[in-house]
Design a protein around this nucleic acid. Structure first.
Lengths: 248, 248
DNA sequence: TGTCGACCTTGATTTGGGTCAAACCCGGCC
DNA sequence: GGCCGGGTTTGACCCAAATCAAGGTCGACA
C-alpha cells in the first residue's frame, strides 16, 4: 500500500543498530554481503498498515527502529493483537507468501526487507541464518505462551500491571539497566492498542490505569508517561513476582 | 519422577509411526543412525507428570503416541494450558536445561527421548534437523496466535466450538480424510483440561457443551464421544468459517 | 453387591468487565 | 481566539461467566 520506499537510506550492515540481535546476528562478512545484495529499507509512518492479513508478501523483514503490531481479526470486527514487534524482531515466514496477520506501524517504523526468494535460498544454504531464526522463533513462542496465561487467567488489573511490567522491562533493557526500584518510561501504545493486546475494552484499560494510579502503584504525567515508584510492587500486582517474562 | 523406562521397546527409526512428521523427518539414514544412538523410549501413564516447570531436563523428546499438555501456573493455583502435544510434536528446547512448563500425560504416552548434549551437537552440525525444528516451531507459533485470539476475544460458546473443531480436524487428519459434513470422535481431554485450555471454568465448559447439544450443533454418546452433524455449522459457531486453524 | 471416588451436570447467586453515553483534554488549524 | 477531532476518562447499567453448592453417573474395587 502507500509505503514510500527510501532508497536514500542504505546503512552498511556492519553499522546497523540491530546487527547483533536480528536474524543476521550470526552472519560473517561474506554472508552479510550476500544479505546486503537482497535488502531494501522501507519506512512507514505511525498508523500506516504495512501488510494486510491475506495479502501476498514478496519480502521478509527485520524491524530496524520503531514499533509494529501483528493483529488478527474476526469477521465481525473483534481484533486481538498477537505480536508486538520491536527493533530486531523478524516479520514474515520463509516458505509462506501469504501474510497470516495484519502488520501495522504503531510508531514511525523502519524495516530492513529481504526479497523472499533469495532469502529462502540463503536459509537453505547458510545454517547460521536458520539457526538464529530458530532461536528467535523459540523466544517468540515462549512470549506467546506467557501471553496466553495473561489472556486466559489474569484479571483486568493484573493484565494492565503485566503490560506495564513488560514495557518497563524492555525499556530498562534498552538503557542497559536491570529493572528494579523506581523507573519511568513512555507508553508506546494507545489505550485502544493496549486493549487489543490484553483482550479488554479500552474503557476497562482506562479505568484500571486510573485505579493503579489512585492506589499509588504508578504515577502519570500526561497520558503516556508513566513512573513506577517500586517495580517489585508492580510485579506483585501483575500476579507473577519472580518472573522472566519475555517481550514480543 | 515415577517414570518407568521401557528399554524393551526399541523401534527401528525406519518403522517409526512419526518418522515423516517429527523432528527427524528430513534425516537420511546416516543421520538416523546417529539419532538412534542417542535415543531412549519412555512411557507414562495417563495422569502422570512428565516434567515439572523449573525442573532440569536432561533430554528433549518427540511424542510417539498419546497426548500430553504443557501448562503454566500462577502462585495462587490458577493454571492455563499453553500447549497440546500430539504424536510427532517436540518437547523441550535445545540450549535450555530448565523446563519452562509442566508437561503432563493426558493419555498413556510414549516419548522418544534424545539425550540433550548429543542432540544439541547434532543440531549444530546437521542443518536438516534445525530446519525441521524451525518449521515445527513456526507452526506452533501460528497455533499459539490462533489460540490467543480465542482466549482474548471469543465467547465461551465460541471457545468450545473452536476446540471441538480443532479436535475434529485433527482426528480427520489422522484418518486421512478432510474435515467436512458429519464427523465423530472422542474427546481426549476431561472437562477440567478443556477449561484450562480455553481459559474458562469447568462448569462453564459443561454448560456450553450441554447448550451446543441442546441446539443440535453436536450429539453426545456418553461424556466423551461427540458427533458433529454438520462441520460447517460448528465452524460458524466457532466464529471463524474459512479458517486454517492449526493444532498444537 | 455396595460404596467409593473421579468426573460431570445443573441450579442459584454474584460480580468483573462489557456496553452505551457523555464529557474532557489538548494539539493542530482556520 | 475558536473550532475540530483523536484520544481519553468517567458514569450508569447490564450481562456473561465465575462462584458456591448440590446432585448425578459410572467404573473400579473390596
Amino acid at each position: 500500500m502507500s509505503l514510500h520506499s527510501t532508497p536514500e537510506i542504505s546503512v552498511n550492515c556492519g553499522d546497523c543498530p540491530i546487527r547483533h540481535r536480528a536474524v543476521c546476528a550470526r552472519c560473517e562478512s561474506d554472508d552479510l554481503a550476500r544479505l546486503e545484495s537482497m535488502k531494501t529499507y522501507r519506512s512507514y509512518e505511525a498508523g500506516q498498515t504495512v501488510i494486510w492479513a491475506g495479502d501476498d508478501m514478496d519480502f521478509v523483514a527485520s524491524v530496524v527502529s520503531g514499533i509494529a503490531t501483528l493483529t488478527q481479526a474476526m469477521e465481525d470486527g473483534r481484533t486481538q493483537m498477537v505480536g508486538l514487534l520491536l527493533p530486531s524482531d523478524f516479520v514474515g515466514r520463509p516458505g509462506r507468501a501469504r501474510a497470516a496477520y495484519t502488520v501495522t506501524a504503531t510508531s514511525d517504523l523502519l524495516m530492513c526487507c529481504f526479497r523472499r526468494k533469495p532469502f529462502e535460498q540463503m536459509m537453505a544454504s547458510t545454517p547460521s541464518v536458520a539457526q538464529r531464526l530458530l532461536e528467535m522463533t523459540l523466544d517468540e513462542l515462549d512470549a506467546a505462551r506467557e501471553w496466553m496465561l495473561l489472556l486466559g487467567r489474569k484479571s483486568a488489573r493484573e493484565k494492565i500491571a503485566s503490560l506495564l511490567a513488560i514495557i518497563a522491562r524492555r525499556d530498562a533493557t534498552l538503557r542497559l539497566k536491570s529493572p528494579a526500584g523506581r523507573m519511568s518510561f513512555d507508553l508506546p501504545l494507545t489505550r485502544e492498542a493496549m486493549a487489543d493486546y490484553l483482550g479488554l475494552t479500552l474503557e476497562t484499560v482506562s479505568r484500571q490505569i486510573s485505579a493503579l494510579k489512585r492506589d499509588g502503584v504508578i504515577e502519570l504525567e500526561g497520558k503516556r508517561h508513566v513512573t513506577v515508584p517500586d517495580f517489585d510492587e508492580l510485579l506483585a500486582e501483575a500476579g507473577d513476582d519472580s518472573d522472566g517474562g519475555a517481550l514480543a
